[in-house]
Amino acid sequence: MSDMNQQMTAKYKNNFLKEIEEQAEMGDWVKMCMQCGVCSGSCPTNFHSGWDHPPQELFMLIRAGKRDEVLNSNSMWNCVSCYNCYVRCPRKIPITHIMHGIAEYAYRIGRAPKSQPTLHLSQTFWNNATKTGRVNEVKLTQTLYFKDGIASGIKKAMAMQDVALGLVKAKRLNPLEAVGISHKCKDIKGIHAMLDKARELEAKRKGRTA
């Protein structure tokens, strides 16, 4: 258990709903759920990838104070952000955002599972994008493909080569990005300053120091 996790447990005692409301992005919407289940039914993944809990059930678990069950759940990591649930929710609950909010919170307090692929993608994407202010698509792909070793990476790359070539032809992918030659944004310092400010504001809102 991480320190952060213990701190939060101590701070909110048994009130997990309050913890989520204050700490997770859009978490204060959880209480508005009326358990109609339209979100769960609307998920295009059909939970084939083995979700532990559909959104509405996750919300019920939060209300029931089942902290471990929620934070250990893989559900929020499996959301594909299609927004079907959000669009259909009769209470206009931003379910997609909440799922990500809970995932982010689980990560922040050290409860995210190791080698969680969604987490890995998100982190890679974030690092890639914030470094230069633009996504280096070739590098991003490389990092993702080769995370499980060279052999597996080559295999994946080979499988996708037609797609890659097509993108290059359509000038949607610049192979030179592989060697770091890529288009940069104009004011990278300004972007970093913006991100720092955003972090500061977010921390303030959630009642913690950055």
Binding site: L17, K31, M32, M34, Q35, M60, R63, A64, R91
Partner: peptide, 14 residues
């Protein structure tokens, strides 16, 4: 009125 109660943090469990 139900919505307002939820918004105030009243918990409803079936």
């Amino acid at each position: 009125f139900y919505r307002a109660a939820q918004n105030k943090g009243v918990i409803f469990s079936k």
